[in-house]
Design a protein around this nucleic acid. Sequence first.
DNA 1: ATCCCGAGGG
DNA 2: CCCTCTGGAT
Length: 210
Amino acid sequence: MHSKKEIDEIIRLLEADYPDELCSLEYVKDYELLFATRLAAQCTDERVNQVTPAFYAAYPTLQSLAEADVADVEKYIHSCGFYHTKARDIVSAAQMLISDFGGRVPGTMEELLKLPGVGRKTANIILGDVYRKPAVVVDTHCIRLSNRIGLVNFEDPYKIELALRDILPPDKSNDFCHRLVLHGRAVCPARKPKCEICSIRGYCDYGKTH
DNA sequence: ATCCCGAGGG
DNA sequence: CCCTCTGGAT
């Protein structure tokens, strides 16, 4: 169990470690972030960034994506994995954005969750990064690090989202989740975490015992 | 064999 | 809760 003072210190240390470049997905338009996030499911951001330039060049508008042939979209995103589902989701989400949301990415959780292939994680990315609303993004890194640190002791993503919403200051939760991702990649991966160089080791249940 | 900024369905 | 969807890197 961590005190509020300890939580604040963890936030501060991670801010110092990762001052900027919080979002590692490259995008220009809002819907590009939405679809890049969909592509990032069980795939590295690095690989997503590798395929999106050619993909968005081939389909430069939301309308062109809505009219796209799913099999052709699959060719561009194939290396990201789950390409049948992802291609279908992207094309039908593009259609729904046009038909139901005036061609704009909506700014509420309820509306975002109506889009095919958009779950709470993707929705929170949009709420946080596009609309600058309080958002808790729970992905594989957030699950692993918040458990190792000892902020939570369960794996269910929605339960973690609710727990972190209570623990973290609303105006800092989104950036904090981004930094957990960066820290997860650089210092605290699933295998062989580098506790010896970790800035928050003293506040981490796992780090204190390893 | 395990992991990567998950979502949907049973 | 479980399972499936998938390629690429380690």
